[in-house]
Design a protein around this nucleic acid. Sequence first.
DNA 1: GACGATGGTCAGCAGATCGAACTAATCTCG
DNA 2: CGAGATTAGTTCGATCTGCTGACCATCGTC
Lengths: 150, 150
Amino acid sequence: MADPVPAPDELDLGLLLFIPYRAMENRVFAALAQAGFDDFSPAQARVLQRIGPDGTRLTELAESAQVTKQTASHLVDQLERTGYVRRTPDPTDARARLVRIAERGAAAQPVAAAVVAEVEAEWRAHLGERRWGQLRAALAELREITDPYR
Amino acid sequence: MADPVPAPDELDLGLLLFIPYRAMENRVFAALAQAGFDDFSPAQARVLQRIGPDGTRLTELAESAQVTKQTASHLVDQLERTGYVRRTPDPTDARARLVRIAERGAAAQPVAAAVVAEVEAEWRAHLGERRWGQLRAALAELREITDPYR
DNA sequence: GACGATGGTCAGCAGATCGAACTAATCTCG
DNA sequence: CGAGATTAGTTCGATCTGCTGACCATCGTC
C-alpha cells in the first residue's frame, strides 16, 4: 500500500520493503516444498514461524501475526491435522492452551533456517558487508516504532 | 516466512522487512478509510497502487503484483464497480485493454500519498538523516536482485 | 493466410479471514 | 465469598482471495 503514483526511480518505502520480503518468502517456501514439506500454505507458515520453543498461546500468535483469533485458530487446526503442531494445556491457565511445534514441524525448521541463511548470505554478498550491516541496523531501529507486538 | 526459531534479538531479515511494511500498509489503509475510502480491500489496493499514470495493462498488473491474470482481472472488476478504475481499449493492440485510474481513484491518491509522506517523515526522524539514507540505498540495491518484475 | 504466441475473460473451487455469538475459566472488589 | 467484568478459545456463516482449467480474440510470423 502506498503512493499510487510513485516517481519512477523513487519507489515508496512500503514497496521497497515488500519486494525483498516477498522474495525471501518465496525462496523459503519453494525450498520447503522441494524438501517434501508441501502440505501447508503461506498463511499457515506465518503462524508456524511465530511459535516459540516453549509453546505459544493462540491469542499471542494471533496478535503477533496480525490476524484474528478465529483465523489463527483455523490455521492451527490445519497445522495440527498435518502434524506440524500440537495443542497442549497451559499449566498456568486452564482456559488457555499452548501451541507447540510437533515432530513434523521440528523437522521442517532446519530446512527453513538453512534457506534463510542462504538467502541472507546472497544478499550480504550483493550489498557488501558495510551496507548489509547498515540495513540490519536501520531495520532493527525501525522496528522499535513499527512493531505493534512487543 | 523464515527461521521458525529466531534468536531473540536477531530476527531474520524476512520478518524485519515485513514488520515495517505491514505498519506502513496499516497506516495508509486506516487513513484512507477515515477519508471515506473504505470500500476496497488490501488486495485491491495492491493492484491499484501499481497502475501507472497512462494506464497499465492487466497482464502487467498481474505480473507486478505477483498474482495470476485471473486474480488481477477479478480485482480490477471490483475496483471498476466501485469507481476507482476504468478499463479502456489499448490503441496499440486491440486484444489489450488499459486499466486507468478513474475519478474515485484519483481522489484517493493524494490522501494515500500524504500518509506515505507522513509515515516516511516519522521514520526518517526516528532513524536520523544518515541511517534513513542508508536504509533507502540498501533497499534499492537489494531490489536489483529481488524484484522479479523489472 | 494458417499457426503459435499473447491479452484477456469466464467458471468453479480451495483457502484465508473476518464479525458475531458463545462457553469456560480467571480476576477484581465490595 | 460471590457477582460482574475480562480473557482464552471455539463455532458458525459470509466474503474475499487467488488458483487451475478452458476458452475466445487478436497479433505476429513464415
